[in-house]
Design a protein around this nucleic acid. Structure first.
Lengths: 338, 338
DNA sequence: TTGTAGGCGTTATCAT
DNA sequence: ATGATAACGCCTACAA
């Protein structure tokens, strides 16, 4: 069941393969009569061009590699959706590979992409070293989402995590909260560190002491939120609000509190980070620092596209505004009971 | 910046390109000395085979097309994760395209895959006609997830939606619920219809009347859940439990009830379908009919792989057991107040 | 064991 | 305007 090739069309339309190629991609004029015959034959035979063969001769595969960490995480999905939309209609196909937050997997994934001759690369998060990223940047049109690499500023798409955390924490402080717990992300990741920093900054600005007992090191998963709550409650920590470094941990915290009979926001206020679409539908709807994940994905796609078309035009670092989506999971602190 | 080819290696190792090819994929014996030289040169030059070129000559692209409907939906993501795992280490790369539940988009997506010479196809849901699917099945190793097509039984991976809905509804009935609302999925989709059927069956078996006012037609999105609740409450419908045709609508319903001050499960019990990972972390954790989404994805991958290796070996339709994940969103019905 | 040569499907450069 | 023909990177008879 060989697939039909331009050779078949040439035979059917009684022209040379070059004529077929020319009419099919309009690279130069073809006599109207032959043109019609070719088109008819192509349609009749159900011809589909072989992208791999085209890529081989043109030197472009028309595919863009996307290195994501966890194909199933709601976080990466929003970005992926943006990427998908960003490439729609461009002729380029994003191809997603998983890094699983493991440097070996990430390297293997990059290799897989390289072998497929991807024309560009989008990397979401991950642990690849700055040096390695710079190498890749030298070889491909590259866009990095959620990372900041020195020297690659124009290729980086990321929000100001410090400011975001500052926003969230300040909001709680303004509502009268004084003892605010923070569940961090993986401490080896820059965004997690930055969010912790923003939290500290907000406390400092309000003249509140930083209490390390109110900081729990999580890993960005739901279960870490549960553990944080267990931890705090277990040692009788007094707190009236929690700021989680991402929404998923906030969900976990909410569940942990619920299991202990503690209500959000009645007893404890809760803020997340990311503002995943699901956060509007949780109970109560979660207040969260809104990252424009979809837009970041879309931007990333548009940027590699631009680099592909105009490799030399400089790109300026984009505006990626952060806002706080205020919902029912926070309320005024009750007067301190002690 | 041309990438290095076997020709480069041949020159560096002072052998012919066929020798290079042979050592690289061990297709036939090569003198140890040359072998070593080739390997060294390849490593030294950082050679990466061009998969497209290999595919061109071998006639296999080593890619599998996956037609998904909504890359961002938590439902498809679980399946996608399974697919990813299923192909891991096989050398085959899944490439995901979006159908958006639009038949045109789906066709366009299939075309995009065809042009890339995919070696196999996995189709998740969608609206493609049975005839079209049969055509595709004739051309590719094909696995269908979430659909049942006559004549393609062995290629279909889907659960018994009637039974699942029956399970859920019966559970509520056993807990004493008599007025159970049902939020359906898109009525043009088979699984939605089947779930409604299971709901009816359970009512019938328990000798309960089917009341069409307790059925609200949704669309599988969260907002439909909210609308259903608004609808029922607006017209003063009396019900003590709700069975939603998927988890996402259950989330919406829960939120709608919350906004009206109605508690789950205190006032109304709630059951979903799918048992998305997130459902364990919602408040309260949602009771739901568990579909083995991840396993379905993994199975799908394994099956195309099998077909690729042993095209003729018959595959039997797999066992895909459904269970009810019972969590806090349901409780005994309170004695009827009228 | 090794190299030469032909071909996979397509585009692009030549003459014509 | 059109048709040979040479690549693109790789594999695999076929010869040697």
């Amino acid at each position: 069941m060989r697939s039909v090739t331009i050779k078949d069309i040439a035979r059917a339309a009684d022209v040379s393969i070059s004529t077929v190629s020319r009419t099919l991609n309009g690279s130069s004029a073809v006599a109207e009569a032959k043109r019609a015959r070719v088109l008819a034959a192509a349609a009749q035979l159900g011809y589909e061009p072989n992208v791999a063969a085209q890529g081989l001769v043109r030197g472009r595969s028309m595919t863009i590699g996307v290195l994501t960490q966890d194909i199933a995480s709601p976080f990466y999905n929003e970005v992926a959706r943006g990427i998908d939309v960003g490439f729609a209609g461009s002729g380029y196909q994003p191809i997603f590979v998983n890094g699983h937050w493991q440097i070996q997997d990430e390297s293997a994934a990059i290799t897989a992409l390289t072998r497929r001759q991807v024309d560009g690369l989008i990397i979401l998060g991950g642990r690849l070293g700055d040096g390695q990223l710079r190498d890749l940047h030298a070889r491909f049109p590259l866009v990095l989402v959620g990372r900041r690499v020195a020297g690659l500023e124009a290729a980086c798409l990321s929000v100001d995590n410090v400011q975001g955390a500052f926003l969230a924490t300040s909001h709680l402080i303004q509502l009268g909260h004084r003892r605010i717990g923070h569940i961090t992300g993986v401490s080896s990741q820059r965004d997690a560190v930055d969010r912790l920093e923003g939290y500290r900054l907000a406390l400092a600005e309000a003249g509140l002491d930083f209490d390390s007992r109110l900081v729990f090191e999580g890993d960005f998963n739901e279960s870490a939120g549960i553990q944080a709550v267990e931890h705090w409650l277990g040692q009788g920590a007094a707190l009236s609000a929690i700021f989680a470094a991402n929404d998923q941990m906030a969900y976990g915290a909410r569940l942990g509190l619920y299991r202990r009979g503690i209500r959000v926001p009645d007893d404890i206020s809760l803020i997340g980070f990311d503002d995943l679409p699901a956060s509007q539908f949780t109970l109560p709807p979660l207040t969260s620092v809104h990252q424009p994940l979809f837009e970041m994905g879309e931007q990333a796609a548009r940027r590699v596209l631009r680099r592909l078309q105009a490799p030399d035009l400089p790109l300026e670092p984009p505006e990626l505004p952060l806002t706080l989506s205020v919902r029912e999971s926070v309320r005024y602190a009750r007067p301190m009971s002690h």
